[in-house]
Structure formats: C-alpha cells, structure tokens
Design a protein around this nucleic acid. Structure first.
Lengths: 115, 115
DNA sequence: TGGTATAGTATTAAAAAAGGTACTGTAACG
DNA sequence: CGTTACAGTACCTTTTTTAATACTATACCA
C-alpha cells in the first residue's frame, strides 16, 4: 500500500485505532469485562447499529477484538479484547491523556482570546 | 462536538495526528531540523502540494508546527516543530513501533495462511 | 529568451467514511 | 395479543477526505 516504510508503519497502527468510534470501543473493552453488542451500544451514545457492527468487524479482522456467539434466543454475542489487543493499551492511554491535556489547553486559549 | 468526555479526548488527540500525511510530517519535523515546503514535499513522495499545504495549516492551527516566512524571492518558508509539538513525540514513537510490529505480524500471518 | 525553482491557491472530481431508516426472527413479559 | 429485547443486515444518502490539474509571481541561470 505504501512504499515508504515509515509511513506504512504509521498507517498500520492508525488504521487499527482510527475510525470515529474505534478508540472508545477499545477503551471500554480494555476495562476487561466482555460486553454484549447492546451493552456497547449503550456505552456509545450516538452510534448506530451499523457503525458499531462495521467497527467491531474491523477490529475483529485485525485480531484486536474477539467475538463469541452464544447460540440462544434471543441471541447473545460477547465482545472482548484479545491478548494482542491489550498491546494497544499504552498507546490508547497516552492518547487519552494527551487528548485531555489538549482539550484543556484549547479551552484556556479560547478563554484568553475572548478577553 | 462530543458530549462523551472520554471520546472527546480521543478525538482531540487523534485529530492532531490523523490525516493521511500528518504523522509522517510530524515525524520528519521531530528530527529537529526546520524544513522548507519543498523539502518536505520531497520527503513525502506522492503527496500533492495541496495536501501538504492543508495538513501543514492544520498542524499550525493546533500550535504543533511553526511557520516562518522569509520575505525574499523566490519565497522561502520554513516549518519546524513547536515545543508543544514535541509533546507528541512519545505517542508517535509508540505508534511507530507498534505499527512496525503490526506490519510484521500481518506478514507472518499471511505467510502461514498461504501454506 | 526560455527554463527552473520557490510556495503556494483555485477549481473540480473522485473516493472513503459515516449516517439514516427500515427490516429480519424468536422468545419472554405483561 | 401486542411490546420489547436481542444482534444484526440491506439499501440509500450525506459528509468528509483526498486527489488531479491548472494557475499565480518573481528571480536566477545558461
């Protein structure tokens, strides 16, 4: 896809993490407890079923999330983080912290500009 | 933009980093040396002038990159990382490493699948 | 005098991502 | 007997992102 190896590595990492809902899906699953489809949906206000499905499928495809189907009615499907997915934890944690600081910084700047 | 604070923080961080060329622009500028527009362009094979301009403007807007114009002809404009921009360094470094490992893992898997 | 380098902008088109709405089948609950 | 919960899929539209191409002005070099 990319000839430039450095860019390729960034792309590979970001593809796994990026998508409007992916980081927060991973964030919730990284709490450790497996979550059902609709539990996740409730944790992500504003997401549509379609978007949740799409992002979960992509995460599964990359072996970051595991999907377990319980053959019962009504259906039960549990999503959980994989061992490999856990390796993303420090990155997401850093992003989360930097993001929080960035939001605060922006807010301060905005307040200064308003004076 | 986002009501969910956690998501908001991820979004804030990712917005700064994401964009097809942003991480690699930052990566090059994080080497320390200021770079001229066309120097960057040569470092990013495949990027169009427009894309480079757009991404640089966004990075400047977020105070991650500094733009210095030398009023001479032909024009000279230098881009460099800001002090604040340097705070992204550990995140980009982690992304880069994880990405490299992820690429390798995918490659191994592909080779296994082919047998 | 014609070509090259500089750092872009403008306009249009294409591709990718996200969103909206409706629909499925079954069981348990009231 | 109507409603709700479950975990989705199908189809279509909108928004966002990226790309392609042409264009600007000026100076230097041969």
């Amino acid at each position: 896809m990319q000839k430039n190896p450095v860019q390729c590595q960034f792309v590979a990492a970001l593809d796994s993490i990026v998508g409007k809902w992916k980081p927060i899906i991973l964030y919730h699953l990284l709490q450790g407890k497996p979550l059902r489809f609709n539990e996740l949906r409730r944790l992500l206000p504003g997401i549509t079923q379609r978007m949740l499905t799409l992002h979960l499928r992509e995460l599964e495809e990359e072996d970051l999330v595991k999907r377990v189907i319980y053959p019962q009615i009504p259906p039960k499907v549990e999503y959980s983080i994989t061992e490999y997915g856990k390796s993303l934890s420090p990155i997401l944690e850093s992003l989360h912290q930097w993001g929080a600081a960035h939001v605060e910084r922006k807010q301060l700047k905005k307040e200064n500009d308003e004076q």
